[in-house]
């Protein structure tokens, strides 16, 4: 297999509160034969703030990055492991199909984008860019039936005409990845329910309720850990559990791992490279 090169858009969270996501993603890519080229001088994708303040800017910011990948880097795929950034990239590319929108976006970006870049989220990278067979061949320390709840949250699959997800209500591609690692993917009810997203900054009570519901179901369905592919999902599911435990003394924490951390452990990377010490609920026991 020839080495593959993907453009890489880390996004603001991976350089901030989710440094372990960046570290574990880069380490697994390296081991799995992918070359990641970070987009030079990348900008924020605009996140939730832009699309609720200026719609045109919210489309132009990700399209500007796609144009850099297509025209400057001459690459045909970009890895966007943050699900929120991924959603903005997919939405920007999708909206460019409307010629009037494309014209306005072009005025803001300063040049056109011809749609030649595939946008890949974390699951896509392992499932498609690496491929399940190639991934299986790299597994050195398979998990022994660790029961994992694969949590997609909102933006990996919704809305489906933007993401082209096969089944936005009950996706199974992340399950295919974790099963390749020797984990047992459980069936459960809340895999595409919202964790409260950015409300964690202002309406913590609401987020605590949503997180409690999601994590309780994962546990009731037999999970020993939750796998996620979004920095905000991870921050909320992992971080808010300590707050939930303060209100509910019977609460037992369920570890919440980035999919890249699970992949990394199975292909033989060490705790340090995977940033395991940064997970708030200690995940080292399930990763041992």
């Amino acid at each position: 297999m020839s080495p593959k090169t993907l453009a890489y858009y880390p996004g603001c969270s991976l350089h901030g509160t989710s440094a372990e996501f960046d570290a574990s993603f880069r380490a697994t890519a390296r081991e799995l034969g992918l070359t990641l080229e970070e987009i030079p001088g990348w900008e924020c994708c605009g996140n939730t703030a832009a699309h609720s303040i200026n719609r045109l800017l919210s489309l132009a910011l990700p399209v500007n990055e796609l144009a850099k990948v297509e025209k400057d880097m001459k690459l045909d795929a970009v890895a966007v492991p943050c699900a929120a950034c991924y959603s903005r990239f997919k939405t920007g590319a999708h909206e460019m199909q409307d010629p009037a929108v494309a014209d306005d976006v072009k005025s803001v970006v300063g040049r056109g984008y011809d749609g030649g870049v595939t946008v890949q989220n974390l699951v896509d990278v392992y499932h498609d860019a690496v491929g399940l067979e190639a991934l299986a061949a790299k597994v050195k320390r398979p998990f022994k039936s660790l029961k994992v709840a694969c949590y997609y949250g909102c933006l990996l699959t919704r809305p489906p005409d933007v993401t082209q997800a096969d089944d936005p209500e009950y996706p199974t591609r992340m399950e295919a990845v974790v099963e390749t690692l020797g984990c047992e993917a459980i069936d459960w009810n809340y895999k595409t329910d919202c964790c409260g997203a950015a409300l964690a900054l202002t309406e913590q009570g609401i987020v605590d309720d949503l997180v409690a519901r999601i994590v309780s179901d994962a546990r009731a369905c037999g999970a020993a850990a939750v796998a996620v592919a979004c920095p905000l999902c991870q921050a909320n599911l992992d971080g808010r559990q300590s707050e939930i435990a303060r209100k509910d003394s019977a609460w037992v924490g369920l570890p919440v791992l980035f999919l890249s951390q699970l992949v990394g452990r199975a292909i033989g990377l060490g705790d340090k490279e995977l940033g395991l010490s940064k997970n708030l609920i200690d995940a080292r026991a399930v990763m041992a």
């Binding site: 603001c12 900008e43 924020c44 605009g46 939730t48 703030a49 303040i53």
Partner: peptide
Amino acid sequence: MFKYNYDSFARWGRMWE
């Protein structure tokens, strides 16, 4: 919060949490 977020990336190019 949306406004702080918008101001932050508009000023620095990236959102500074």
